[in-house]
């Protein structure tokens, strides 16, 4: 990443533009697509929005895994709607990325080639129905904690997409909580299923906020640009403070022996996630990394002839219209 203050401001005209841009950021104004912006700002946004969009569409898989087995028709309808929302959120975000001058097909290619990331959480498997609940409650809960501040992000199209997404996401978290709540009050088998699932998803959900601030590479610059508003550790704390009382309401425990209220800090203390595991999953060695990408690539490749046909039909129709005119 280059420092926008040096190379790009060399030109006198660029210097004026840079000042204008800095002024808008300082005034907490929104940057819009046709505004001049430093290359590094543009690249950072493309990387972050793309990763976010990829996460939405890869995230369809672990939950989609349970649609055909959903245990009641009501749950099935809710789950279809939820997975559909994720496709929609992916589309909102790709559309925001496209305002920065990069095509969705390019971004998808980068995803398929493994050159852009998606949230590592989706590399964990959904092995029981309760996982659909845990994903809604913990994973979507962590995502919302991350995303609400993004509604005020300095880049207009991204901020607007996030407003839409956050509105829709709150339903996701509630339905997840509701699944676990029902299981926790159900048969012994259901209760065990719920607890076992929360035990598996708790730590990965804490990792969703990224490495500790002391080791986070992109944080500082993103904060300066008003892309990021709070640090990884601040958001992680906020999340833990939110889920502890919710776990009590569920009647389920969180698998963290260090969890305790600190009157002094006014926050819950909690343990340290296994960052080695985090790095391993990030590197591609998680339980489902290969499977998720393979699934995505297959859908894309198998759809190639369909997209081609739609294009060919549109071209033929235009030609026919011209001939008739």
């Amino acid at each position: 990443m280059t420092d926008p203050g040096t190379d790009e401001a060399a030109h006198p005209q660029d210097e004026a533009r840079q000042r204008r841009f800095d002024g808008m950021i300082a005034a907490d104004e929104r940057i819009e697509p046709r505004d001049w912006m430093p290359d590094a700002y543009r690249r950072t946004l493309i990387r972050q929005i793309a990763q976010h969009a990829h996460s939405e569409i890869i995230g369809m898989q672990p939950e989609g895994n349970w649609i055909t087995r959903a245990p009641s028709l009501r749950r099935k309808a809710v789950l279809i709607a939820k997975v559909q929302d994720e496709a929609g959120h992916g589309l909102y975000l790709y559309s925001a990325a496209e305002t920065l001058g990069v095509g969705r097909d390019e971004l998808l290619d980068l995803l398929h080639q493994g050159r852009q990331r998606y949230s590592s959480i989706f590399n964990y498997p959904t092995v029981t129905w309760a996982d659909v609940g845990a994903i809604g409650w913990l994973v979507d809960g962590a995502a919302i904690t991350n995303q609400v501040p993004l509604c005020r992000c300095s880049y207009g199209p991204y901020a607007r997409a996030m407003v839409r997404i956050c509105k829709e996401e709150s339903f996701h978290q509630r339905q997840g909580f509701d699944i676990l709540y029902t299981l926790a009050r159900g048969t012994d088998g259901q209760r065990r299923m719920a607890q076992e699932s929360v035990d598996r998803w708790y730590w990965p959900s804490l990792m969703m906020f990224g490495p500790p601030d002391s080791e986070s590479t992109h944080s500082e610059q993103s904060m300066a640009w008003n892309i990021k508003r709070f640090s990884n550790d601040e958001l992680r704390q906020r999340f833990v403070d939110m889920i502890v009382p919710q776990a009590e309401a569920l009647g389920l425990t969180l698998p963290d022996p260090a969890l305790a209220w600190s009157a002094e800090r006014g926050h819950y203390d909690f343990g340290t996630p296994d960052w080695d595991e985090f790095m391993q999953v990030l590197k591609g060695n998680g339980p489902c990394n290969r499977q998720r990408l393979e699934h995505r690539r297959t859908a894309h490749e198998e759809g190639a002839w369909v997209r081609e046909a739609a294009r060919a039909h549109a071209a033929k129709s235009r030609a026919r219209e011209r001939a008739a005119a």
Binding site: Q61, G303, R307
Partner: peptide
């Protein structure tokens, strides 16, 4: 077909 459509618009 969830997450298996030929393009995202079609998934929706």
């Amino acid at each position: 077909l969830a997450a298996r459509g030929p393009q995202l618009e079609e998934d929706v």
